[in-house]
């Protein structure tokens, strides 16, 4: 995040960090006890799914707090239009965790923007652990920045008609150099509606981080909300590992089961 400030611990409780091979590479957001929403380009095909870890309840990347939780990834669902109509179009991924998230004041889900959400005059914020300068400096502290939405037609004028698709939206303070940057991808753009926070965007791409005329381009979450719902409601939960029975306990259960079977026959 360029032009941001350090975030307090419970302010963005839906923020997640996507780690690959032990390093933060992208952001994400909690949308369910088993699901993290992120960007498809964070999960390129040549990456090994087993090398991904998800962290929630984190503010400082180097310090696990009382509410920090770590998860392995069970599956990643990439939108079928990713890269189809635009090199980074359809940039959305659903990450199913192997075990469920325990919610607390520091770990909570964000609401998903409904398909017909109207965006205007909103106060919206982006968060992330990405670069904090155009030279690529990073911060371990989660950064937050308030970003004005840039009208879609204006964004098309800035980037070109073919670069900004209907599944994208733009935000950024081009005058004060406030924007998202590398390492923020996958993180949420959230807005407050009557004390309820709703995610409207996923950090996706941009013309560098600090070109004054180019705002950040986000995946438009409302465009994909039905797809998100469909997968969360229809994807089976991960298989939970069974507790290992000791040989003695296993033997006792076997005896009990056999006794019950005999009794039922009698």
């Amino acid at each position: 995040i360029l032009g941001g400030v350090d975030a307090l611990e419970t302010k963005w409780p839906w923020q997640a960090s996507v780690h690959y091979a032990g390093f933060h590479i992208c952001g994400g957001s909690i949308i369910d006890e088993y699901w993290i929403l992120s960007a498809a380009h964070c999960f390129d095909r040549n990456k090994n799914i087993k090398a991904f870890d998800m962290y929630v309840g984190l503010v400082d990347l180097k310090i696990a707090g009382n509410h920090t939780q770590w998860f392995e990834v069970n599956r990643v669902i990439i939108h079928p239009t990713y890269g189809l109509y635009h090199s980074i179009g359809g940039d959305i991924a659903l990450v199913q965790l192997k075990t469920r998230i325990v919610f607390s004041d520091s770990v909570l889900p964000i609401c998903i923007a409904p398909p017909d959400l109207t965006l205007s005059n909103l106060s919206c914020w982006a968060t992330g652990w990405g670069s904090i300068s155009r030279q690529g400096e990073t911060s371990n502290k989660l950064q937050e920045v308030r970003l004005p939405l840039v009208p879609w037609q204006l964004c098309r004028l800035l980037y070109g008609q073919t670069d900004i698709l209907p599944d994208m939206l733009c935000a950024g303070n081009v005058r004060d150099m406030k924007t998202a940057c590398e390492g923020d991808s996958g993180g949420p753009l959230v807005c407050e509606f009557d004390r309820t926070w709703v995610q409207i965007g996923i950090v996706s791409w941009g013309q560098g981080c600090a070109y004054p005329m180019y705002p950040t381009v986000f995946t438009r979450v409302s465009f994909f909300s039905k797809w998100i719902h469909h997968h969360i409601e229809n994807t089976p939960l991960p298989l939970q590992p069974l507790p290992a029975l000791s040989s003695t306990l296993g033997a006792i259960i076997n005896v009990l089961m056999t006794s019950l079977a005999v009794l039922s026959v009698l």
Partner: peptide, 27 residues
Amino acid sequence: TAHRHPASEEVAFSRDVACGQRHVQGK
């Protein structure tokens, strides 16, 4: 103005926790 949808249309996938409701501390 922002058009807020009725509360019933808001999506909370988790059974026990409402989405988008961060803990607010009194000053």
